[in-house]
Design a protein around this nucleic acid. Structure first.
Length: 202
DNA sequence: ATAACGATCCAG
DNA sequence: TGGATCGTTATG
């Protein structure tokens, strides 16, 4: 049923330049199981956070207990808690000692809609996973998931053959310092993107 | 020890 | 457009 057998992305996929990974993740499918219920969603929006020189990256102050996983190998989950009530899902990229990750900002819900609606408290499918905080709430993703290996079976990303026809690049949403970097990507044809922002003119 | 600040979301 | 709400980090 799910795209499981078609192609779970290997660690190699994540062990590349973060901007490439963030771009290529558009259209891929996140699969995970929560309370014996399969959940899945197609990635329609991402953002790259790259290294200690990126003022918006959590690695800007160097290695700490919270961001340690970003300094490890690629293909692992990094979830952090923010604003006292929301969780943010990231996938670690690049190689060891190159702290970087891709923030998953929005999904098109595919499987487990009922469970997502229950957790979100709404039924409108466009309100389930169209935002980084929303998708974590819909899929019960918390800091407990930090460190999960995406090469495993309980939480992975797959390629089911879908190809986004048009991917838009814009500055990242909600960041102050480093807000000028065009490191956000989204599927132009998706109605599940969090914020429609016109790409900054050249 | 303490205070300021978010890679957000939703109500008003 | 402002407030909720608390872990992380910097500063005294």
């Amino acid at each position: 049923m799910t795209s499981d057998g078609f192609g779970k992305l290997p660690r190699q996929f994540f062990r590349r330049p973060t901007l490439e990974v963030a771009h290529d993740l558009i259209g891929k499918v996140i699969n995970l199981r929560r309370n014996r219920i399969d959940l899945s969603g197609r990635i329609v929006e991402t953002e790259a956070y790259i290294g200690e020189d990126d003022p918006a990256c959590h690695a800007r102050f160097g290695k700490t207990a919270r961001n340690a996983v970003m300094y490890g190998d690629a293909g692992y989950v990094y979830v952090y808690f923010i604003y006292g009530m929301y969780h943010m899902l990231n996938f670690v990229t690049e190689s060891n000692d190159q702290p970087a990750a891709v923030l998953i900002r929005a999904l098109e819900p595919l499987t487990g809609l009922g469970a997502m609606q229950k957790r979100r408290g709404v039924t409108d499918v466009h309100q389930l996973t169209s935002g980084p905080g929303k998708l974590c709430q819909a899929m019960a993703i918390t800091t407990v998931d930090t460190g999960v290996d995406l090469a495993g079976d309980r939480f992975h990303v797959a390629d089911d053959g879908f190809i986004a026809e048009k991917i838009i690049t814009t500055p990242r949403i909600g960041v102050r310092a480093g807000g000028d970097r065009p490191w956000r990507f989204y599927d132009a044809n998706s109605s599940f993107v969090s914020v429609k922002r016109v790409p900054r003119p050249v």
